[in-house]
Design a binder for these strands. Structure first.
Length: 485
DNA sequence: TTTTGAGTTGTTCGA
DNA sequence: GTCGAACAACTCAAA
């Protein structure tokens, strides 16, 4: 029996600055690289469609990157609690390593496997490959979990230096036998859409994988970072990092994002100000906070953090929900966002808030329905950030927006898409409308509409709800909620 | 223990 | 057109 090490990839599909991979490499022993697609239904939530497509591309890239270095990535499908012990009995590694996860179901899975392996005398070593601070390392001075972002983020950075990113090993030793009777091919995982291949337009917009992640970071530093504090709110400008799908699957390390952005400001590579840097880092902080909340409340995608929202009278209206999903609400900024999501698997952050506020407050549809749609269609849908952000908008979350903060879709559009470029791109049937009416086509007169080739109710919907009326109903519903609890 | 200040991202109304 | 206040209280975090 030759000693070998098993590296189990999960949400860390990279070779650069991957502590588990590095640990295995440093041992000098042959490495078994493993990825398990867990569709057992026993642990975490099944992946949405867009994420599955992304995962397929990412595994392809990771497999190539490992092969180039003389190793081999072996794929499996099913329950890791069965598969990992099976692999250990087949391959007899002396040690198993992985980077930690933070959802209770995942933690339980990993803990059970670790206990089982250690009972057989196999070493298990786990690492932080995902977060700046792991949730259990941060408690408030009164001993409890933080519930407000600002003190959380202050504490997270206090007395803590973000480690410098580590280089990738340039060659791996392969074990003599790396086959398994359980292994499957990537095609067996059936992650890509078949019948209608809706992923074509997504594939045009994204390059998944580690190289794509590094390129996205470089592009952001050189073209989006300067002015980030202001321009990050502008969906008509290329000023967000677009790193979220890569971070979701760990194709780039948080340490690298942190250090690269910091160094770029210090070295003068970018004109980004210290304020731009602070705001960008605090966005990374929100990701940390979401994982912190997920750790402390594993059912965050199902249960209101503020339980008084359990009594909220949500409307069950499939037609309205469908109009929202399809981008047919009659509010251009909302429809542009929903269509960006459908076409590219992504939506600008500002627009996410607008469409979420619209679903929850204008349509009064349960935030969980919106969260589910995002889960299925967003490439970056994350078990922490997605539900935490929806609850934030709903007002039911930790440190959430106050309920009376109801976005006005026309005002938001005028403020953040002032020339209507974003709307025109994703809602082309409005493209010929002047700036004056682009965010509210129903206010245009018949002459303007005809000249722009628009027939309201035919080529583009009239608003499915009236803003003022919807706003007042939402305020009344929320008010009733607070009286009875 | 009690107190105090603070808390991502907004809108509307009336002066 | 601009500006400040109201919108609701409440809970958290730390002194």
């Amino acid at each position: 029996m030759s000693d070998s090490i098993l590296v189990w990839f999960r949400n860390d599909l990279r070779l650069l600055d991957n502590p588990a991979v590095l640990d295995a490499h440093r041992s000098g022993q042959p490495i078994h690289f493993v990825y398990i697609f867990d569709d057992s239904g026993k642990h975490a939530r099944p992946l949405g469609g867009a994420q599955k497509w992304w995962l397929h591309q990412s595994l392809t890239r990771l497999s190539e990157d490992i092969s180039k270095r003389g190793g081999r990535l072996v794929l499996f499908r099913g329950d890791p609690e069965k598969i990992v012990p099976h692999l250990v009995s087949e391959w007899r590694p002396s040690k198993v390593v992985w980077n930690r996860r933070y959802h209770a179901a995942d933690i339980a899975c990993d803990t059970a496997i670790k206990a089982q392996l250690e009972a057989q005398g196999i070493a298990v070593k786990t690492f932080n490959g995902t977060l700046i601070r792991e949730p259990w390392t941060l408690v408030s001075k009164s001993g409890g979990a933080f519930k407000v972002f600002t003190p959380f983020w202050r504490a997270a950075r206090e007395n803590h230096d973000v480690p410098s990113p580590q280089a990738a090993p340039d060659a791996f030793a392969s074990p003599p036998n790396s086959s398994s009777n359980l292994s499957v091919s990537l095609a067996d995982l059936a992650l890509e859409p078949k019948k209608p291949n809706w992923a074509e337009s997504i594939a045009e917009a994204w390059v998944p994988g580690e190289a794509g992640a590094l390129a996205a970071l470089e592009t952001f530093i050189d073209h989006g970072f300067a002015g980030y504090a202001e321009n990050r709110n502008r969906p008509d400008m290329p000023s967000t990092s677009r790193l979220s799908p890569y971070l979701r699957f760990g194709e780039i390390s948080i340490n690298r994002v942190w250090h690269t952005s910091e160094m770029a400001v210090q070295s003068g590579r970018t004109k980004a100000s210290s304020e731009d840097l602070r705001v960008f880092q605090s966005e990374l902080g929100w990701r940390e906070f979401s994982y912190y909340l997920l750790y402390h409340q594993p059912d965050i995608s199902k249960i209101n953090v503020q339980r008084r929202f359990d009594e909220f009278p949500w409307q069950n209206d499939p037609a309205m929900y469908k109009a929202w999903c399809r981008g047919q609400t009659g509010y251009p900024i909302v429809d542009a966002g929903m269509r960006e999501l459908w076409q590219t698997g992504f939506m600008h952050n500002r627009v996410r808030m607008i469409v979420a506020s619209f679903l929850i407050k204008h349509l009064r549809i349960d935030w969980r329905q919106g969260e589910n749609w995002f889960w299925d269609t967003l490439l970056d849908a994350d078990p922490a950030s997605n539900p935490a952000s929806w609850q934030w908008v709903a007002g039911s979350g930790a440190d959430a927006a106050p309920f009376f903060r109801i976005f006005n879709p026309m005002l938001q559009g005028e403020k953040f898409d002032p020339k209507g470029d974003y709307v025109r791109h994703y809602v082309p049937e409005l493209a010929r409308l002047s700036n004056k009416y682009i965010q509210a086509p129903w206010t245009a007169g018949p002459l303007e509409l005809t000249a722009a080739g628009i027939k309201l109710g035919t080529t583009y919907p009239r608003p499915i709800v009236d803003h003022d009326a919807a706003r007042n109903s939402a305020l009344a519903a929320f008010k009733a909620l607070t009286v009875y609890t």
